[in-house]
Design a protein around this nucleic acid. Sequence first.
DNA 1: GGACCAGATGTGACCGGTAACATAGCCATG
DNA 2: CATGGCTATGTTACCGGTCACATCTGGTCC
Lengths: 345, 345
Amino acid sequence: MKGATIRDVARRARVSHQTVSRVINGHDSVTAETRDRVLGAIRELEYVPSAVARSLSSQRTHTLGMVTTDVSDHFFAEAVAGAEAEARKRGYFLIIGSIEEGSEDDERTYLRLMLERRVEGLIVAVPRLRLAEDDLLADAVARIPTVLVASDIDLPGADHVDIDNRRGGQEATAYLAAQKHRIIATITGPLDWPSARARLDGYRDGLRGAGISADRALVEPCVDWGLDSGRRAADRLLESAPKLTAIFAQSDLLALGAIAALRARGMRVPEDVSVVGFDDIPVSSVFDPPLTTVRQPMREVGELAARLIGDRAASSRKAKGTRHMLRAPLVIRGSVARLDGVSRH
Amino acid sequence: MKGATIRDVARRARVSHQTVSRVINGHDSVTAETRDRVLGAIRELEYVPSAVARSLSSQRTHTLGMVTTDVSDHFFAEAVAGAEAEARKRGYFLIIGSIEEGSEDDERTYLRLMLERRVEGLIVAVPRLRLAEDDLLADAVARIPTVLVASDIDLPGADHVDIDNRRGGQEATAYLAAQKHRIIATITGPLDWPSARARLDGYRDGLRGAGISADRALVEPCVDWGLDSGRRAADRLLESAPKLTAIFAQSDLLALGAIAALRARGMRVPEDVSVVGFDDIPVSSVFDPPLTTVRQPMREVGELAARLIGDRAASSRKAKGTRHMLRAPLVIRGSVARLDGVSRH
DNA sequence: GGACCAGATGTGACCGGTAACATAGCCATG
DNA sequence: CATGGCTATGTTACCGGTCACATCTGGTCC
């Protein structure tokens, strides 16, 4: 039978609907015999309790909302997977709003929809968030535990989770410097992404730490994080700074694109030019050469975000926002060569 | 104020709750003046309508459920993204249940939870579904529009969407044969995945079409789809069939792993051994050599699944299940060489 | 001027659960 | 044997919307 309700079950089992409710929720004090009768009725009627009604009455939805950029991006997908796993472990469902690149006001739409659905926590993983001064996000923070992922917006009351991009960039650059490289270029992601700016800062930190002075000609920004951008950026770099010996690319795809461009010009990696990436996507380890890169623990980011929300919901204290930085460790593989004082060509 | 209800708004605007409801839903026949007063009250009270209450009363949740294997798998993430985009276009939200590899009865749990949440449609994208004879899935199909993705279970009443794996495998193999290869090995995914079996069938079709007889020694199954498996499989193949000139790997990662293993033995790709993959993951195009592969349109799969559900919900006819196969076209790049009658070495 | 109609608004029930309290039956206890 | 307390179950209100229908107002028409 379709759409049996708790009262239908009650009638069939000749008890009150409240007793059925007790059975469903495994409550105390129901006779074994009554319980069996109720369970029998449930099975016969193919009764499935309504989470909707339950939510309305209990004021709990057991739902977390996550607004992210397009899930087809590997790293956000990882974060979603992490958040989902952690949420589920704690008995929450995750509803996702995946924002397509290009659409205008989607974040607001999603935020509103999630608020309407009475999510008990919100994870906002949208870099380049245009909601900074927006009342809607502040509103959300005021109502429910909110975690901002990889955002530079400082929203009092919200928790923040991010990769330590600056340190990652610094370590990558310092590593190149430690291999005696002196002309180290960098290919950055879009500079309206906070993570791109942080990695660039880290790059400068690394240079400074090695006593190398910065050179604007060695910084090549891209409009996206993709392969083609990396390819073109490398081409431009080779025009403007033909003597470079190393490139720190802010994503693995940028790095692979750059390597492709280098090869197209007959240069070898790492013998002629060393390359370091950022991300550690699955293929990096099997690429030829295996890519030395900074690993982003995005799954952990998602997990942590969900955990923070769970903790906050549990303690229900209106603590002020915390800030968490996850380390992005350098993974050393084979795309960097040591210069050993010998200049190239 | 937290948790204002429609009646709070009504009181404040000095109208009935029903008038507020009308304003919210943009209904006819409300005076401009009344509307303004209501909207003002809504703003002052920071009222956010409850989708939960609305769902209970209207019996509509505007929600689709999607059960998939781990979203961190690139291809399922693509499918999720596609489904999400299409669902949203039609005014639905997507709730996802991402099943971690290894856990036992998660599919059932998720299915039940989604039924409880009264999703209006269900997308089940779980290869190796253990729910074949399960009443729960049949139950779901009986209640709501259901689409099975990449599953070989034949469930009457459910729609099916899949990649035409067999044809993809056939085309990959036929292409190798057309380049004069005669000893063509294949590295398969886990053979309990329907897609792996279908690709293997396609491989055999391709051989047969070229008049090449099958050789069991040239078929190397793996326990997963990953790089390491590809590497090991290639090693085994080179032991058992040292004269092979081509490998059709059932995933790009398997292919890349195989290439790594070939290189480790000093063999060149494609000069010594040609390799074709399956998937077309983003790095395949930039790999060295650029990988010739069969592209899986997973995003389209997700979109189609959501569209089918939307259509069905709209027409509400209890049509019997349809079956859709999406073509997986061969993308020719640089990892296959033409033999031209010259045998290798 | 009364009947009629349409537009604007209000009333009460209902969706399917949960929560708080009420009640009935039973046993122990002094 | 009356009292009390515990257990099993029932009763009723309530969560926050929507829906069907009722009511009120003013204008039009004959």
